[in-house]
C-alpha cells in the first residue's frame, strides 16, 4: 500500500505501525510517532493498523529555543 512517511510517499507491505518502523530501520531509537495527526504511543504501535494513504510522522529530539 502507499503511505506517507515523514513527508515522503513510500510503498510498504507492512500492516502495522510497529512493522513499518522496523522495516524502515527505526530500531532501538528514541522516537515518537503520530498517524493522521494523532499521537500513537509506543505501547500502541503494534496494534495500530496502517491504512492506504495514511500519513505517519516519526520524530526525535532536536535542538530548540
Amino acid at each position: 500500500m502507499q503511505i506517507t512517511l515523514n513527508g515522503q510517499t513510500i510503498e510498504t507491505q507492512q500492516t502495522s505501525l510497529d512493522g513499518l518502523l522496523t522495516e524502515q530501520g527505526y530500531t532501538d531509537m528514541n522516537i515518537a510517532t503520530a498517524m493522521n495527526d494523532n499521537f500513537i504511543p509506543q505501547t500502541e504501535r503494534a496494534e495500530t493498523v496502517l491504512q492506504e494513504y495514511c500519513v505517519v510522522e516519526v520524530v526525535a529530539p532536536m535542538q530548540g529555543g
Binding site: 527505526y26 531509537m29 516519526v58 526525535a60 529530539p61 532536536m62 535542538q63 529555543g65
Partner: peptide, 15 residues
C-alpha cells in the same frame, strides 16, 4: 529547551 523534528533512520541526528 529542546524541540522535536522528523527523524531519519539513516543519519539518526536526533539520537
Amino acid at each position: 529547551t529542546v524541540s522535536v523534528r522528523r527523524e531519519s533512520s539513516s543519519d539518526q541526528a536526533g539520537q
